[in-house]
Write a protein that binds this DNA or RNA. Structure first.
Length: 1042
RNA sequence: GCCCGGAUGGCGGAAUUGGUAGACGCGCUGGACUUAAAAUCCAGUGGUCAUUUGACCGUGCGGGUUCAAGUCCCGCUCCGGGUACCA
């Protein structure tokens, strides 16, 4: 009898549930540790083995920290709003809440079997009104806040109103959309509507009319990170640009803090880099250019103000408002035409031909403020309206895009930065511009002779003094569009009075999602909420019909876990000051520019409000790699191609190859084979076509005098001997005008589907791969019976097998998906091997951060290991055999070595090497037949994070009270690891030659002597001079000989 | 194009600080037990050569630093991911 994991696992899973073993409460006597997984969106497909990978890792770490004496918060919940449930509702009419609840139940059930130590009492579901009440509440706070750059902090909007009333907005240094200055007097005279419009420019949640990513197929607006290459990330529908009124979050106010914060957190360098790029800070200057003959000025942003003297033209984005005012009459038509096509072009089309250089001259000129040169103003698509000021000064000598543009339109190029000091080149000979910031200035008036680094502050200073510009930092980061035209999301706590938005009072929250008759936009194109009856306040003011995007609910969920049942506050002061923030966050790196930016912003805002107590929400982030599917393929034979191939082989074997043309063409007719000497055409036909040969054959034969032999596919494949006989007859029997296939052989024969094994020669010429369910394939061998049952049409399938009689499948690494039949669910594996084995196996696949293909082959090894570990405690009849005998030094050494190594591995989340250490330890103890409590008991605690269910059982059987989860983690004792001797590898010139055992405390001189006298050494020293001996204690001895 | 990762046996991977390359597992080969199979156990398993002791080669490629390089430096190749007219 061996380890009965089914019974044991069931027992402990229900024990944990019944006793709420992992229920966590704030306990100031213990240090806290917060381990969080990115909560899943519960899709209808359920979990596959890839999902729990990160959960296993975090659970192992959470359990490890618990053993170390930490009070560990380890919650789980569901990101429940989202498109799939809504799409499903549109198709079937099922309320998304129903679908979502069903899916959550399924996820809970699946997760429940895997041995996690989640505190389910803290579960949060973003679609639950008790939860989204606080999402709405936060929105209201954002709406009622502005960002004060002087204090680097969000502040109440009332404070801003106070300032306006006192002194207008002249001294206000705020994050805001475009505003004109006004005095206190003017402010007081503005109407309510005007005041509200001005305040909207300052609010951290604001309404604005902008170009958005509109996805007609989904009927909604998408955020930038939801669009990939001009298509929606979900569903892959085309996305267009459209001007709409939308809610925004002023995340750009936090750009600098989001950037600076990255240096304080323990995240992978790569994901920090992605965020840095996304935030896209660039330092430069704003410069004002006069427009010749106009009062207006052109404001541009540049990161290279040092190259200002090299500006030879200006370029405006097609959307730039000034274009129409400055374009000269003779250029008007051309410019209008250009703008029209450019603006209407979708994002997708623009991306499609990035390389194409287009542009048009306005006829107007700008004046370079440093040298008063007149330079032409152009309009071109390569300048984007959304970045900087939508206008640039073009310095073709030192910017590759400007350079390409100048070349294309034959505009002048002036070098102002040289590679070597005072060494001017001829830009006409250049293939590309010189963009580097290494260099010296020339042709630049006051800047001449300076380095680029010196010139930048000098020119900014100069411009500032002249009132012609100033230094500025620009960010690529855009404000986040917060409106979605969907049903299944949080309603905005907003109503409209005379077109002006107002937020609901906090006591009116949550504003629950209304029922609607259909989950589609209205006939007028309004969002689905417009279908709801009485969607208005009690006073009759209409409520907002947009809903919030997916990232709304996930931006603050980690805070809500701290105090999930609080209906008075988002979370209590006590809870947050105890739990602080997430110590370890585990999840996929696909959220780098979405969730992980938004929630950092969300947290910083709540921090400014004094709610969150830390600036950053996630101290350490680990991105688990994706588990990819390993698809299996069978190769379906294309029967016609196969028959052709076989026949050709037969012809060649018969020695007729030189007389036969394959793929014979006559005019525009093509035939399979043509036997030249006997003028015989051979055509391979399916049975149906043989029944009624096409009439043109008769005509063709009559006209050309060629003869024709029609052969059925079936006979070529299954009656090869007869076929060659038929062909031979036809060749010789030249008397016949034409030879149709013999009638007597013409019985109806059905052709069964035929499949060919992977390693059959030339297989790829006449077969096509077909995904098969990976459950029918074991070590790449196909279970033919299972395959026949898989699909009715393959019931009578036939197979071309390998020499050893097996059908071997091909394979490929791809994303796991239903359509590829490569999805492995955890359920099947838990059923077969148990949760502990699955946990350890997923860890054993390799480093947690690495993507890896799923492969079930190795799981047997973990299963064997588990049984072997169990046998350290039990005899063949499953009786405990643990003894109280004193352990030997050797056994103690194995134990303490393992404790040391495994603790180190846990500490650095290297769980695959931890499992391997346990294997080594188990192998060693097995061969020593060690069954001693002194050794085994600490090992049970040590293995419990990896295999918690088995560990609980062993712990109880060893006479302890459950649960092992809070047992003290064993520590290693160096004294058991100490050795008197060390086996030194001895190398000569760096090559290891032999080993020698020496005392650990040996001196370098003694070691050298011992090595040089060793008999094995003589061979290597002989005839050579020993130049040097390197002795590294407890490492190596290297002898340098020459 | 730019920015990050990565490349080690048949496969997943180990080597944490420059110090015995290939731990551990899978797979494979042979053996024991068995009527047989499964399970289990034992032995072998980077390549080439050598009957043995053993020798040489070997961490994508080319160079370098060092007593010593998978690890550090320079130059490439290939693979994966991100991003893209961001001035």
């Amino acid at each position: 009898m061996e380890y009965n994991f089914r019974e044991v696992e069931k027992k402990w899973l229900s024990y944990w549930e019944k006793n709420k073993t992992f229920r966590t409460v704030e306990d100031p006597s213990k240090p806290k540790y917060y381990v969080l997984d990115m909560f899943p969106y519960p899709s209808g497909a359920g979990l596959h083995v890839g999902h729990p990978l990160g959960y296993f890792a975090s659970d192992i770490y959470a359990r490890y920290m618990r053993l170390k004496g930490y009070n560990v918060l380890h919650p789980m919940g569901f990101d429940a709003f989202g498109l799939p449930a809504e799409q499903y509702a549109i198709q079937t009419g099922t309320h998304p809440a129903v679908t979502t609840e069903k899916n959550i139940r399924k996820y809970r059930e699946q997760l429940g079997k895997l041995g996690f130590s989640f505190d389910w009492d803290r579960e949060v579901v973003t679609a639950d009104p008790a939860y989204y009440k606080w999402t709405q509440w936060t929105f209201i706070q954002l709406y009622k806040s502005w960002y004060n750059y002087d204090k680097c902090k969000a502040r109440p909007i009332d404070e801003l109103i106070g300032i306006f009333e006192k002194e207008g907005n002249v001294h206000v240094n705020a994050a805001c959309s475009d505003v004109k200055t006004f005095t206190a007097e003017e402010w007081k005279n503005f109407s309510e509507k005007e005041q509200q419009e001005i305040l909207m420019n300052y609010r951290l949640a604001y309404l604005s009319d902008t170009w958005v990513n509109w996805c007609p197929a989904l009927g909604t607006v998408l955020a930038n990170d939801e669009v990939k290459d001009g298509f929606s990330e979900r569903g892959g529908h085309p996305v267009e640009r459209k001007k709409m009124k939308q809610w925004f979050l002023r995340i750009t106010a936090y750009a600098q803090r989001l950037l600076d914060g990255l240096d304080t957190i323990d995240w992978s360098e790569s994901i920090k880099e992605v965020q840095r790029n996304w935030i896209g800070r660039s330092e430069g200057a704003v410069v004002f250019f006069d427009i010749d003959g106009h009062k207006e000025q052109l404001e541009i942003f540049t990161t290279r103000p040092d190259t200002l003297f090299g500006a030879t033209f200006m370029v405006l984005a097609p959307e730039h408002p000034v274009i129409r005012r400055i374009t000269t009459p003779e250029h008007r038509d051309e410019v209008e035409e250009y703008i029209k096509t450019a603006v209407n072009r979708s994002e997708r089309d623009r991306i499609a031909d990035v390389k194409k250089i287009t542009g048009v001259f306005t006829g107007a000129y700008a004046i370079n403020p440093v040298n008063n040169e007149k330079i032409p103003i152009w309009v071109a698509e390569y300048v984007l309206a959304g970045y900087g000021t939508g206008a640039i000064m073009a310095v073709p000598a030192h910017d590759s895009r400007d350079f390409a543009f100048a070349r294309h339109f034959n505009l002048p190029v002036i070098q102002v930065v040289t590679r070597e000091k005072n060494k001017e080149e001829d830009p006409a000979t250049w293939e590309d511009s010189y963009d580097s910031k290494e260099g010296w200035l020339i042709n630049s008036g006051i800047l001449n002779g300076m380095t680029v680094q010196e010139a930048i502050p000098a020119i900014i200073d100069h411009l500032k003094k002249q009132n012609r510009g100033y230094g500025k930092v620009n960010f690529r980061l855009r404000d986040a569009i917060f409106s979605r035209q969907r049903y299944w999301g949080e309603p905005f706590p907003v109503y409209y009075k005379e077109g002006i938005p107002y937020t609901l009072d906090e006591d009116q929250l949550p504003l629950e999602l209304p029922e609607v008759d259909k989950y589609l936009p209205t006939e007028k194109g309004e969002p689905p909420l417009a279908r709801a009856k009485n969607w208005s306040t009690p006073e009759g003011y209409p409520l907002e019909t947009n809903t919030m995007p997916g990232f709304a609910g996930s931006s603050g969920y980690y805070l809500r876990y701290m105090d999930p049942h609080n209906d008075k506050e988002y979370f209590s002061k006590e809870a947050v000051s105890y739990w602080q923030n997430v110590d370890l966050y585990v999840g996929g790196d696909e959220h780098a520019t979405g969730h992980l930016i938004y929630s950092r912003f969300w947290n910083k805002f709540l921090y400014d409000l004094g709610l969150s107590v830390t600036e950053e929400p996630f101290k350490k982030l680990v991105n688990q790699g994706k588990i990819l599917g390993r698809s299996s393929f069978v190769y379906r034979v294309n029967l016609e191609k196969y028959a052709e191939y076989l026949l050709w082989q037969m012809i060649r074997n018969a020695g007729e190859a030189e007389n036969v043309i394959r793929n014979y063409r006559d005019g525009n007719r093509r035939f399979d084979f043509y036997h030249t000497p006997s003028r015989l055409i051979i055509e391979i036909k399916s049975q149906e076509k043989l029944e009624k040969p096409e009439s043109y054959y008769e005509d063709y034969i009559r006209h050309t005098g060629n003869r024709l032999l029609l052969l059925p596919i079936h006979d070529i494949i299954y009656m090869t001997d007869d076929i060659m006989e038929d062909i031979r007859q036809a060749i010789e029997d030249t008397a016949h005008g034409h030879v149709f296939f013999d009638d007597h052989k013409k019985k109806i024969r059905t052709l069964n589907p035929l499949f060919v094994s992977k390693n059959i020669k030339d297989r790829e010429q006449w077969s096509t791969p077909l995904h098969v369910d990976i459950n029918m394939v074991h070590n790449d061998e196909l279970d033919i019976e299972a395959f026949r049952k898989w699909r009715p049409e393959f019931e009578n399938a036939e197979f071309i097998l390998e020499e050893d009689g097996k059908y071997i499948c091909g394979w490929e690494i791809e994303k796991m998906s239903k359509s590829k039949h490569n999805v492995q669910t955890p359920d099947e594996l838990v059923e077969k091997y148990g949760a502990d084995v699955l946990r350890m196996y997923e860890m054993f696949l390799g480093p947690i951060e690495q993507s890896k293909p799923w492969d079930t082959n190795g799981i047997e090894g973990i299963s064997r290991f588990t049984k072997k570990f169990w046998r350290l405690f039990h005899d063949q009849d499953n009786r405990m055999v643990v003894t109280e005998e004193k352990a030997t030094d050797e056994e103690l050494k194995i134990l303490h070595k393992t404790i040391k190594k495994v603790r180190e591995d846990y500490e650095r989340l290297s769980f695959h090497t931890a499992v391997s250490s346990f294997m080594i330890c188990t192998n060693d103890l097995s061969s020593l037949k060690c069954h001693k409590r002194e050794i085994l008991e600490p090992l049970v605690i040590l293995i419990s994070p990896l295999a918690p269910l088995m560990a609980e059982e062993l712990w109880e059987n060893l006479g302890h009270q459950p649960s092992i989860s809070f047992a003290p983690l064993p520590d290693h004792d160096e004294k058991y690891l100490a050795e008197d001797t060390f086996e030194y590898p001895v190398s000569f010139n760096g090559k290891m030659r032999f080993k020698i055992v020496l005392p650990v405390d040996i001196s370098a001189d003694e070691a050298e002597k011992a090595v040089l006298q060793a008999p094995q050494a003589q061979k290597w020293i002989e005839g050579k001079a020993v130049k040097k001996v390197i002795f590294v204690p407890k490492r190596i001895i290297n002898v340098v000989v020459k």
